[in-house]
Nucleic acid binder design. Structure first.
Lengths: 258, 258
DNA sequence: GTATGTGAACTATTTCACAGCA
DNA sequence: TGCTGTGAAATAGTTCACATAC
């Protein structure tokens, strides 16, 4: 548990909201596109459209970084690219390791979006001895035994976990012990880490489940009565066993085999 | 804005907060683990720990679904699994198509987390004729030409886009035209869709960039003076052209090759 | 006694709308 | 005139703390 870390008032204007930070990469991507097309300046309206947000939000976000625009004109594309890159820490090179070179790990290793944004894949690590030495994305897979040495030799502070869920915590512990302080976790499990270590998670099936929720609701709007019927009457809950209750569609739960 | 939705307003329980919806899959995953270990009941405290949230939030979240716990006891695991599954729409089967069978698409096709949560990969689709017929995850890849027919034949309403960025909007348009109303987008681009179509995006490099931001801040805490210096003095901004200003580190932007 | 369920307080985020500046 | 930058208002989300029910 993170103790009483309520919020950080900090001394200086160190407070870029988390929601804003999460959008900076979006702006950066949009700006990079404009830059490649040699567009010199862009208005908040145009950039917002390219990034998929509204312009008020974008302007507010930028206001946390400073006043980088020109009233009546807009923003200088190159200048903004640089400012946002700097704010995100992308003007320096971040060596990362990817642990777990299965389908997903290999896909990540091959993913161009990392290298193009200041991230350098320093090593690919897998626990399977059969993988050791095999080239993936033009780079030999290394064995987990050498994890600590690899982290240390390369000064890695960011680790990507793409192992099965069962191995993730153990890998995480070793990464942290070796000095990694930021982890991107693709394994469908909750990682516990000491204070000062950041974890972000990407769970592919969670995103689909959120879509399913909304999809269901869309369908339910056509026949709202059915959805209402699906709500079990409160009285029923008080009765006997609940687990084997029939579903509203006339079928058993039947979810989650593994 | 859900006006005064205090409790279940009979007709439509319209109004589970988005933030709550996004956590339901987390609870479901934790509960599934408990269910497999045959744990009969769980307290909000225990379940919250397993899901990586705090218990007050969990109880509040559940309160939007209904009163599914027992005071002084906790929650019946199987019952909750069922209720959350139903709420998420996972008691029905969702056929999905994956478009773009590169490294990532193949990884997604092989990802067990989909199948185990009520999602069925109905088809793998790729634009490369050389891929057509090749088996991936035990299933032959089909050509984009047949996209509309595949969607229609399988009643697909959820599509996963794992194509390069350049192809994503076109694929998206065809999916939507064919009847897909929910899209999970892995391509690093903003998709525009008509009203009524949901898009969720997963951008692998964005997550890393957010980590880099925090990582940089950690490093900066050790030498806060440097970070402060990096912020251009406000006076300087008022001066002439900005684009060609030297970076604070004494160098030009030089980010984003591609 | 114990743990849920929930108003109320608090914090974060988004949106509005317009003053201020190029 | 046109577009940024930003207080203020509105909305969303989180946490508190305790009445309530088992």
């Amino acid at each position: 548990m993170a103790t009483g870390r309520t919020h950080r008032p900090a001394t200086r204007s160190r407070g870029i909201p988390e929601a804003t930070v999460a959008r900076l990469p979006l702006y950066l991507r949009a700006l990079t596109g404009l830059s490649e097309r040699s567009v010199p300046t862009v208005s908040s309206e145009e950039l917002a459209a390219a990034a998929g947000v509204n312009s008020a939000k974008l302007r507010k976000d930028f206001s946390y970084l400073g006043s980088y625009g020109t009233r009546g004109v807009g923003y200088d594309v190159e200048y903004l690219v640089y400012q946002i890159s700097r704010e995100l820490g992308l003007t320096q090179d971040w060596p990362v390791v990817i642990v777990g070179i299965g389908n997903l790990g290999a896909a990540l290793a091959n993913y161009g979006g990392f290298a193009s944004r200041g991230f350098r894949v320093a090593a690919l690590i897998d626990a399977d001895p059969a993988m050791a030495g095999k080239p993936v994305a033009g780079m030999p897979v290394q064995h987990t035994d050498d994890l600590e040495k690899i982290i240390d030799d390369n000064g890695v502070s960011i680790g990507v976990i793409a192992t099965p869920a069962g191995a993730a915590q153990q890998v995480c512990d070793r990464l942290v012990a070796a000095g990694v302080t930021s982890i991107l976790n693709f394994a469908p499990t909750v990682l516990s880490v000491p204070d000062g270590v950041d974890v972000r998670k990407v769970d592919l099936s969670i995103e689909l489940q959120i879509l399913a929720f909304h999809e269901q609701r869309k369908a339910g709007e056509e026949s709202a009565a059915e959805a209402a019927a699906a709500q079990l009457p409160p009285a029923a809950r008080a009765a006997g066993e609940q687990a084997d209750r029939k579903g509203p569609d006339g079928d058993v739960p039947a979810v989650m085999p593994a």
